[in-house]
Structure formats: structure tokens, C-alpha cells
Nucleic acid binder design. Structure first.
Lengths: 349, 349
DNA sequence: AATTTTTCCGTTATCGTTAACGGAATTTTG
DNA sequence: CAAAATTCCGTTAACGATAACGGAAAAATT
């Protein structure tokens, strides 16, 4: 089986034209008569041409700059997970000629996001990864990107603009539903506790809202009589957290099931560990270092993780493929694994 | 920040030599005086040279042929999962100039493995992926590969030969331990059932033995008084399977927990579904199509999956990187995720 | 000292694609 | 019908690394 690669030269010969013309057809940059165009396309079809990516990239000297716009690790440990993903993506794509530049912003500071967005635009990247926190401003950004024909990829969540190249994230509603199953372990539960963050109480956009919905729907279907209590804690005030939990469990000592829908289950770990002795079932989200440690110690039973590092890596890969190889991602919307982590499998993640 | 790539020419100039000499140093193929050698290496250090992979690959016309030696899908559905992984790996590496050829063998037929091994050697590949089934013969093969300086990667399991480039597999003992936790859901269980395959009864090498060990150790630690029963079924005889289970549950109607350590939990699904009504907890391994269907229907509660497709893909990637880019894998032994699949998260895998 | 070897190094064609350049052929304009 | 403008196409020099080739210089052999 002689698999001699067919080259531009082969096609040119078969079409009775020159490689210059063939190249013009391939990149349809005009200056080719209809008749020649068809001859070339026929030859390509006949010979099954596959461009040589090395020759192409070498000759064109194509370079790509990909901007990654995410909340800064300083504004919470969740996003520091993605650092590693950026590193891996950088390593994988660097030899291709891709540079990755991270631009982070304070996820609680709208003005800072505006600044970061402007910075991204100013560097005229060939692709942008966006983790949206501010709906309205993100919309503005992506519209501008669309106008400039700069492809962009959403991770974690997305906003209502359809011109994105791809999206990588967790199915939120389903993760809540799954969480219900894991917390109750399939049994009926009489009374359980949801711990929430104080600032989300009146927050207009709680990103975990649909997760909570999925959870409640699971309960309604599988544990109909269940009573659901909520308490609100202040992430910056451990004393308040302790107080709130003390109060709740003094009144409701029978509650055995505790869940949080954001990534901050570690906030209640100190209380749990100083009030050990009761058998409890605790479920949280995301493999933050602090969460994983609590899981390993047995304070937390299950974490549902979405691995933001993988999301970033895939997002960068998609943009790199687009910029360097003109390849579109296989799927536009990519819902990622919901990994169930217990103390017994966590060390292999 | 001017990041003009430094080329061979830059180095040659700085060293006061020609690119020919620089190239000889880079690939240390001799014919260079000690003094020149050092001048070149100094220049490389000074300028921070990074070879241009496209120019290199284009010029050298390097090609790689990677052989994948795995049990045939016909000998059980487990290995057909890896097909997809081969496909993905092929797609990813083909543009680099890598061809992948699968060679499969009947995992119950020693002679067939010998034939397949010979076939692999005859095609003089630049790398081999091996899923070992026959210990002794695999040893023979890899020793020969080592002699011929052909790198190879183990997947699924490995044999006692240290010259492998990498290994990708599941930690078997730990997967059994995890399985114990998932089957009992952390509670004490009085009596449970392990279903095994008849042919493994006296089989000298049951690949799931250490998984069973991990399981038993979990029980000893967390459910000490638990009684463990075993039954043996014939995978080719549904009637026998039914009979065996009927008999067992007539005598032990109180048993609620069932587990299998190989990938064939689907074999007992028909019995489970025609004997529904009792609340049972069923745990198995691997995301075979039949298993996943049973999971979705609720007949099986949990699957622990190792995703052979990922293993193959990573193995091929490692060999491709080695053959085409002279890159060594980051880690030699790679233990993969143990994914916990329930009906609620399975569709995202 | 003349020769043969050996050591060492520079020159160069090549890989396949890209894109600038310029020229021929054709069409439009005056 | 000549001049000007288009349209269309072939030629060619990069891109950076590879490795074959041959030649100069040094060393070893007579």
C-alpha cells in the first residue's frame, strides 16, 4: 500500500495548472477563473489531498495569542485550580506557536472586570477564553469580539450570545439532581440542611441557583416529605458561621444531612470537626485543596467536581485548533464530567 | 518584548560556525571537535534555543507507525470500548505523521497471541501499546522489543519488566476498596453476594484478584461481621446463571447487596429485572454499553469505570511524542481515574 | 617529505506551503 | 484601433531544519 502523500504539486499537475493557482483555490483568495477553480477542486477530490500542516505552519509563520479572562485566584480558591490547566494547555500548544496570556479580575469588582476586558481587547488576541461573572459586561465584551471576528470560548457558564465558538462547563441542574441522590444515598430523609453564603441571599444572580433547583426536584421525586432548612453564613466571619450552625443544631439536633451548592464547603469544616461524634452525611462541590483535605479526613463524604483545569485546557485547545489549523470544535456545547469524589478515589484525580 | 525565535542560523553565527555543525551537535552525530561542540552548546544556552518542530518534521520527513496490541472486541465487549480511543488518538496524531495499526488477538487463545505478537514485530513499528493477557508470552515480546529498541507502553495491566516507557491503568486494589465503600454506602452489612465467572474459579491469573482483595479489606475494616457468599456463573449459559441465582436467593432471601469485580455485571441483569420488587444495591465495573443501560434503568446502582479509551489514547500519545518529538512522558506509572457512575451522571461520560 | 587517512566543517538541495511579484492574455475604455 | 485596465496565472524566494556531499586542514603513515 503506497501511501505517498499527495502534495500541491501533484494536484497542480493533474489540474494542468501551477501550485500558485492551487494555493489560491485552497485559501480561496480569488484571482482564479471559474474553470480553473473547478479543475483544481476536481483534482483535490480525485487525489484526496490532505495539507501538510508542518509545511503550512512553517511557511506562513502563523502565530496565535490566546487570552484567558478569568476571576483571579485571590478572589477565592476555586479559580486557582484553573492555573494548572492553563499551564498544561500552554505546554501543549506552545510548540505549535501559541502564546497564552492570562488576564484575571476581581470577581466582586465590576470595574476591575471592565479594565480586564479592555486589556484583552487591546492585546488583539486571536482567541479569548471567558469565564463570565458579570452578565451585562460580558455581553458587551463578546459582542465586541464578534464584531472584530475574534473567536471566543465560554467556560464555567455562558451568557446569552450565540456567536461563541464553544462552551465547556458542568450541567448545573443535573449536578444538583445528582447531589440529591448522593446526599440521601437513595433513602428517604426527614430533614436536611442547606448552607448558603450570606451575600447570595439577595444577590440577583446566584450561579448555583439552577443547581439548587435540580436538588429540590430530586427531593420532591424521591423523598417527598423532606423538610429543607437553610442557614446563611458569612464567608469572612468564622465566628458568625459557628454561631449560626450552633444555633441551628441546638434546635434541630436530628438533622444528619448537610449540603452546600457552591465550592465552599470547607467553610463549615471547622464547625463539623469540633462537633464530631454524630454520624453525618456531608456533600459539597469542587475539588479545592481545602475541600479535598476535609474529604480525606472523612469530615466531608462526597465532593462533586467539575475540574476547571480541564475546562480551561479544552477551551484553549479549541481556540488553538481554530487559529492554527482552521479546525472547528466537534461540538459547540460541551458538558463535562461530574466526577464523584470520595476519600477512596480522590487521590487519583 | 521582542520574542523573535532564535534559529539555527543565530546560533551558528554566535558560535562562529555553520548551521551544519550546529545541527551535528544538536543531534550529537559526531564529527565535531570538542572545542566547537562547546562553543555551540554555549551559544544554545545563551540564546535559549527551541527547535522549530515544523521545520524539523518537514525536513526529516519522519513518520511513525504505532502498533496497538489488545484483545479483540469479539472476545468480550470490554475491549471494544478502546476502539473509540484508538480512533481519537489516530485523529490527533495523524497530522503529525503517525499511523496507528491495531492488532488484536483472542484473549483466550495463547497461540493467537503469539501470532499477533509476531505480526507486531514484523511490521517494525516505532512504538507498541500492549494490553497484556498472557504473562509469559508478553514478557517474551517486550524483551524482544527492548532488544530492538522499540519503546512500548502497557495499558490495563503490566508484567514484570522495567523497560516500558509508560503504564496507564487503574489501581486495582484501590478500586476494590472503593467498591466496598460504595456497595455498603458506609453502613454495616450483614450478608452480601459476590458473583464470579466460572472460568476464573481455578484460573491461575484472575486479573480482578487484587480488586477482590481491596474489597475484602474494606469489609474487614468497616463491616467486620459481614458474611460474604460467592456464586459462579457461566457467561455462555444464561440458564445456568438464572438457576444459580434462583438457588442462592431461595436460601438467602435477606441478601440485598450484590457485586461483581469484572466488567460483566450485565450478565446478571436479566435475573435482577425478572426478580424486581426487592430493594437491592448492585455495584459493578466498567461502562460497557449493556452495563450503562442497566444503570440507566436503575437495575444497577453504581459502576466504577476506568475508561479504556482514555488509556489507549494516552498510551498512543506518549509513543507519538517519543517517536516524533523525542519527548519522554512526564510520569512512567499513570494511575487513572476511578470514575463513579450513577444513573444521574452517566450521560456526561 | 610525500602520501594516505582521519578529522572536522561549510555548502547546498530538499521537504511542502505560502504569498509576493510580474507578465501574459483578455477585456474595457477613449 | 490603440491604450489602459482587468483578469488570471506561473515563477520564485522565503520558512527552519536535515543530512548528504565534498573539500580543507590536520594527523598518521610510508
Amino acid at each position: 500500500m503506497k501511501t505517498e502523500k499527495t502534495t500541491l504539486m501533484d494536484i497542480a499537475r493533474r489540474a494542468g495548472l501551477s501550485i500558485g493557482t492551487v494555493d489560491r483555490v485552497l485559501h480561496n483568495r480569488g484571482e482564479v477563473s471559474r474553470k480553473s477553480q473547478e479543475k483544481v477542486m476536481q483534482a483535490i477530490r480525485d487525489l484526496g489531498y490532505e495539507p501538510n500542516m508542518h509545511a503550512s505552519l512553517l511557511s506562513s509563520g502563523r502565530q496565535a495569542l490566546i487570552a484567558v479572562l478569568i476571576p483571579s485566584p485571590a478572589s477565592g480558591p476555586f479559580w486557582s485550580l484553573s492555573e494548572e490547566g492553563i499551564g498544561r494547555a500552554a505546554q501543549a500548544t506552545a510548540p505549535l506557536g501559541v502564546t497564552i496570556r492570562k488576564v484575571d479580575y476581581d470577581q466582586t469588582d465590576l470595574d476591575d472586570f471592565r479594565r480586564a476586558a479592555r486589556q484583552v481587547l487591546d492585546m488583539a488576541p486571536s482567541g479569548v477564553v471567558v469565564a463570565p461573572m458579570f452578565r451585562h459586561e460580558t455581553l458587551g465584551l463578546v459582542e465586541e469580539l464578534h464584531r472584530r471576528e475574534i473567536p471566543f470560548v465560554f467556560i464555567d457558564s455562558k451568557v446569552e450570545n450565540d456567536s461563541y465558538l464553544a462552551y465547556f462547563g458542568m450541567p448545573m441542574y443535573e449536578s444538583g439532581y445528582l447531589c440529591g441522590d448522593l446526599l440521601t444515598a437513595g433513602h428517604a430523609v426527614g430533614h436536611l440542611l442547606i448552607v448558603r453564603i450570606l451575600s447570595d441571599r439577595h444577590g440577583q444572580s446566584d450561579p448555583t441557583a439552577s443547581r439548587r433547583e435540580g436538588f429540590m426536584d430530586y427531593l420532591a421525586e424521591h423523598s417527598p416529605g423532606c423538610r429543607v432548612s437553610q442557614v446563611f453564613i458569612d464567608p469572612d466571619d468564622p465566628a458568625q458561621t459557628r454561631q449560626v450552625l450552633d444555633d441551628f443544631f441546638k434546635e434541630n439536633p436530628e438533622v444528619r444531612h448537610i449540603v452546600m451548592f457552591n465550592s465552599r464547603i470547607y467553610l463549615i469544616v471547622p464547625w463539623l470537626e469540633s462537633n464530631a461524634g454524630t454520624e453525618r452525611r456531608v456533600v459539597g462541590f469542587d475539588n479545592l485543596e481545602a475541600n479535598v483535605e476535609a474529604l480525606t479526613r472523612g469530615t466531608v463524604d462526597i465532593l462533586i467536581a467539575q475540574h476547571p483545569d480541564e475546562q480551561v485546557a479544552l477551551a484553549v485547545q479549541a481556540l488553538s485548533d481554530r487559529a492554527m489549523l482552521d479546525r472547528e470544535p466537534a461540538r459547540k456545547d460541551n458538558f463535562m464530567h461530574m466526577d464523584i469524589l470520595t476519600r477512596y478515589n480522590v487521590k487519583y484525580y
